[in-house]
Design a protein around this nucleic acid. Structure first.
Length: 492
RNA sequence: CGGGACGUAGCGCAGCCCGGUAGCGCGCUUGCAUGGGGUGCAAGAGGUCGCUAGUUCGAAUCUAGUCGUCCCGACCA
């Protein structure tokens, strides 16, 4: 057993890391906190990106690209924004190296090449984008401006974790400008629903849509909407955010437009983003002790075929059958790999593709050909069954939707059984420590109480759900009156 | 930024206490057999022991320093 995995029960964090590394999604790099996304992981990201990109375009957005560097003075302009990101910025101070005269063969920063103004490697692009929008927006006719960017950003995190929090990560950031507050709010909510649809329908991961408390808001936002998902260890993970930025950035960058009535008004803004962190969510939500489990709709590889044979004659026979299957699956838009490599045997391949989370595995050998069947194994339940060769394509098509649905149902059942209503502080701490998951509890609405709860329990308010029902009650911590329950959890 | 580990072959590790020509497993190469759940046998290739300085006839091993990475916490997508 070359690839024995740590089980979830033994060490959840280590299990997660091993899955990423051994499953071939990513690797540590030579740069602290930065990872190499390997082809298998990058294909997964491409699949996710392609779906999202289409969803953005279907809702009227277009893509553009803005600079990697943000002049320091731009970042300063929106105060809350600057404060939020200042502590984790990579800063470019020089533009040239030279050979070190005192240390042969070594390079040094050329002190004569100091930049007049430091450039910040973007931690997010509001500043550089709003500086551009200033010139793009003159009239109400220029609005709304609906732009998305696919990019990398850098946040110099103190502690990093593969996919969940890396110093550099890939994401998309939408930045829109609107004539009215109502329209901007509508946009922020619309994109939250796009994210929710994507995560639920493609990643098979149920989410709770809600708004953040002021404490947890994005730096510079008036309202932050979020989707929250629950991982198998009972911790919550923020899977995406959408912000109503008010006129903060318009005022900071002096972006005004003329109304029909010929009056100058500041524009209203939103921004929204999801990142490669979603891959971390995917891994933690569905995978098991045998390896990754990837939903068919975004899987880098949907079907793998393993031949079983003795000698070249049988191989030729199997090849012939497999080639027809491969053509049939491809014709139906299903990605498939025929792994007839000689260097590993069938058993090894079975284990390997389970580790990589390929949704469906087909094995075909002499016995199957004689019986007119193929062996089909599904990754989610690990069930194996013999399927008549004639029905194979239809059966695989069925499995693609059935596995997708099963993964969603499984995650939903887990999530729903881990939302616990509590009515006292004792109960709160007990559920948090013994069961985990979301805790629905009354909160008095003050940041002070929120902070104290966090201090004492390490739980944070993940969100105030959008579909919340009003309910009279008293805060579990302070005993003060409350009008609704909010969701607490330990979070990534 | 606090705490804890670790840097020796592509990967995982032993050797270090007690200094004396660098080893094991996996992987890799070649061949033969094998092939329905991580294959067996045989022969090979592969390492400035993180870096620097010191002690010593001699350092992977002792001393000092330094760099880096990972894990756990606080902060964050």
């Amino acid at each position: 057993m070359a690839n024995e995995l740590t089980s979830r029960a033994t060490d959840y964090a280590q299990w997660y890391n091993e899955l990423i590394l051994k499953g071939g999604l990513a690797d540590y790099s030579a740069v602290r906190g930065c990872m190499v996304i390997k082809p298998y992981g990058y294909t997964l990201w491409e699949n996710m990106r392609d779906v999202l990109d289409k969803m953005f375009k279907d809702t009227g957005h277009v893509n553009a690209y803005f600079p990697l560097f943000v002049p320091k003075s731009f970042l300063e302009k929106e105060e809350g924004h600057a404060e939020g990101f200042a502590k984790e910025c990579a800063v470019v101070t020089h533009y040239r190296l030279k050979t070190d005269p005192n240390n042969k063969g070594k390079l040094m920063v050329d002190p004569d090449a100091k930049l007049e103004e430091e450039l910040i490697v973007r931690p997010t692009s509001e500043a550089i984008i709003w500086n551009a929008y200033k010139d793009w927006i003159q009239s109400y006719r220029d609005l709304p401006l609906l732009i998305n960017q696919w990019a990398n950003v850098v946040r110099w995190e103190m502690r990093t974790r593969l996919f969940l929090r890396t110093a550099e990560f890939l994401w998309q950031e939408g930045h829109t400008a609107h004539a009215t507050a109502e329209e901007a709010i509508e946009e922020a909510e619309k994109m939250l629903h796009v994210y929710g649809d994507f995560v639920e329908n493609y990643m098979a991961l149920p989410v709770i849509k809600g708004i953040k408390t002021p404490n947890e808001r994005f730096a510079g936002a008036l309202e932050t909407y979020c989707i929250e998902a629950l991982m198998q260890d009972g911790k919550a993970l923020q899977a995406g955010t959408s912000h109503f930025l008010g006129q903060n950035f318009a005022k900071a960058f002096d972006v005004k437009y003329l109304t029909k009535e010929n009056k100058q008004e500041f524009v209203w803004a939103t921004s929204w983003g999801v990142s490669t962190r979603l891959i971390g969510a995917l891994v933690m939500a569905h995978s098991d002790d045998q390896g990754l489990v990837i939903p068919p709709r975004i899987a880098p590889l949907q079907v793998v075929i393993v031949p079983i044979y003795k000698g070249p004659e049988q191989k030729a026979l199997v090849d012939e059958k497999v080639n027809a299957i491969v053509a049939g699956l491809k014709a139906n838009g299903i990605s498939v790999k025929y792994d007839d490599s000689e260097n590993t045997r069938p058993g090894w391949k079975f284990a390997e593709y389970e580790l990589k989370g390929v949704p469906v595995r087909i094995a075909i050998g002499q016995k199957d050909i004689e019986n007119g069947v193929v062996e089909v194994a599904r990754r989610d339940t690990k069930e194996k069954q013999s399927v008549p060769a004639a029905d194979l394509i239809e059966h695989v098509k069925f499995l693609m939707t059935d596995i997708q649905q099963n993964l969603y149902n499984r995650a939903l059942a887990y999530r729903d059984s881990h939302i616990t209503e509590v009515n006292s502080w004792e109960e709160f701490k007990q559920v948090l420590n013994e069961k985990g998951g979301f805790i629905a509890a009354h909160w008095d609405g003050t940041p002070e109480t929120e902070d104290k709860i966090k201090e004492e329990s390490k739980a944070t308010i993940r969100c105030i759900p959008l579909n919340n029902q009003p309910e009279e009650g008293v805060c579990v911590f302070s005993g003060k009156p409350s009008k609704q329950r909010v969701l607490f959890a330990m979070a990534y």
